[in-house]
Nucleic acid binder design. Structure first.
Lengths: 186, 186, 186, 186
DNA sequence: GATTAATCGAGACGGTACGTCGCGTCTTAGT
DNA sequence: ACTAAGACGCGACGTACCGTCTCGATTAATC
């Protein structure tokens, strides 16, 4: 048995699972993370309240399941011969993700929640959406990444952009991003 | 009017104000931001609920008032002849601030809240605790900072560390910080 | 202090109190005791749920407060020279109370609840609606009631009618009641 | 068809039926009628929830089936030459039934439920546990019971005791019962 | 002996009431 | 005018039980 023993009793409803994920996705955009409630999610999904609690323990958990796949896809960047071009493309994708995309909106909400809820913090780190995407770029654009250095390079790639957007709330122009990419590559 | 018109009637109670700020400080450490409530703050401070609402409109606002001064002080770093040493000192202070300090705990909570509450975001940007401290370091350690470049340099100084701590939850060694500082200065 | 110390804070709202009692009265008639809920009462009375719980601990308690006064009034019977006539009048009033009156409907519901909830049983016995009314009749229509005998006579007056209505669900004619009264007086 | 057409398919499980009746009996004593639930009964009996609903439509119905036979047996009183002695014996049995016996506990619970649930009321009247037992006594101890009078006599026999116990919650001594019996017989 | 059909246990489903908690407002008396 | 106290209407919390609905597994009677 590869998959959760398949025991007795009525099996989990895929219909309900998808309805909840869909509801969370929609509600995040329509009304924002803060005013989203477990009760509201259940009602929006036409699902019993208990059903939500049975499979997820918080709205953060639902949101992560609802957006992780989208996030990973949106941060994918095709390989490119020119390192600067590739890094620029990644930073552009990351900017779009953080400022425009629905999945990015979810990511910001989760990252925010993680600052005052250790459970969410762990959840988010185990998914490691940004890290995974960034490490790919680092590996392809940097020569001899000596393990320990990889982490530092990742932070240098993602950190400045994250700071500019999440902390300063700044809007970055394409040339800002190009500059960042050049400095990153040296 | 130097102070706030000073009309008739009983003046604002300094005792109540300090009790509230003190309560918020303590409660943040004891039980965390998320489970802190306006009701709880008032009771802890032995203050009427209305009194809290009269002077602050959210727990974020109280928390900012309670911790902004401490934050600024903790991020001050003495000038140093060697740029690398100064930057390392700043990064060390920032690390301590974000991982150990009470004021830093408050800052993280506020930064988190800001991700899903625009009002808090604005509040936090207007205080700009990190930016102010970082810009001082940038100005002293970099030659010819051409206005626009200053912002980019600030992001490069603070961003990587912020990412490592807030997003990755990583623990940084002194040599990690030294390395970061060297790369920052070139 | 005769009344409950009259301390600090906003005083209890008489408006809310009456709205709840009124709502319970109406709902009992409209939908019955069983399907009445604390939530429903609060909503019907346009009152917060907490407000209901603050002053009453169960729907039985509210119902008793709402109907005790009415019940006592409905069971009052004017003194009469002829004992048989007076007892007949009382039994007629009691029949009407138990089968027709709103207050009687409440009483039956409470008496029912009392059978499986000791708290309600005690509540109901302390009010002692039926006993009070019946003892008056017994005292006026029986000579030399030697204390201990009074209780037995009360049971003989009220018991048979109660059994016929509550247990058998029988409908009693005026001549049934007259017969009961005659046998009671001898 | 003597039994229930006996079609194809798996026959009803006697094991399950008895387990449910047993569970209800036990739970009534252990936790009381009010806090007994269909879910709890099923779990206690190690029986599927659907199985309970398939054969009974409410806990009242189960309880009646579980206790009716016991009740009838407990209220049986041997014939006696002396009418007063026989009536006293019956009242004593009835008192024990209502205050001590498990079946009596069930009866009180059902009688209570009947006050606010017409379905239970009908169910209980169709079983008529008390009436059947009482009518036997009335027939044996009274001469010329003219049909219509029988009902009145039954009410006079059972009513006062029922009132004393169920409404007043009084504890009756043997001499109280003897007195009642004497007055009943004249 | 295989098929058929109703049962069994388990347990998820959409609902809804529970009693509690915090919200932000209000109404007191007291300073 | 401001204070502490505390009730107000509101609505989300997480839990429990409702009665229904699948599931796979039994268990006879019928073919």
């Amino acid at each position: 048995m590869t998959e959760a023993t398949r025991g007795a009793g009525r099996p989990r409803s895929e219909r309900a699972r998808l309805a909840v994920l869909r509801a969370v996705d929609d509600m995040l955009v329509e009304e924002g993370y803060a005013s989203m409630t477990m009760k509201g999610i259940a009602e929006r999904a036409n699902v019993g309240r208990q059903t939500v609690y049975r499979w997820w323990s918080s709205k953060a958990e639902i949101l992560l399941e609802a957006s992780a796949a989208d996030a990973a896809r949106e941060l994918e960047v095709p390989a490119h011969r020119d390192p600067v071009a590739e890094v620029t493309a990644f930073l552009t994708a990351l900017t779009a993700f953080l400022t425009t995309s629905d999945a990015g909106l979810a990511y910001r909400a989760l990252l925010g929640e993680a600052q005052h809820d250790p459970a969410v913090a762990e959840l988010l780190q185990s998914a490691d959406v940004l890290g995974t995407a960034a490490r790919g770029i680092v590996a392809r654009t940097t020569v001899d990444v000596s393990g320990a250095e990889s982490a530092a390079r990742t932070a240098e790639l993602v950190g400045p952009l994250l700071y500019a957007i999440l902390v300063e709330g700044r809007t970055l122009t394409p040339s800002d991003l190009r500059g960042m990419a050049e400095r990153f590559v040296r």
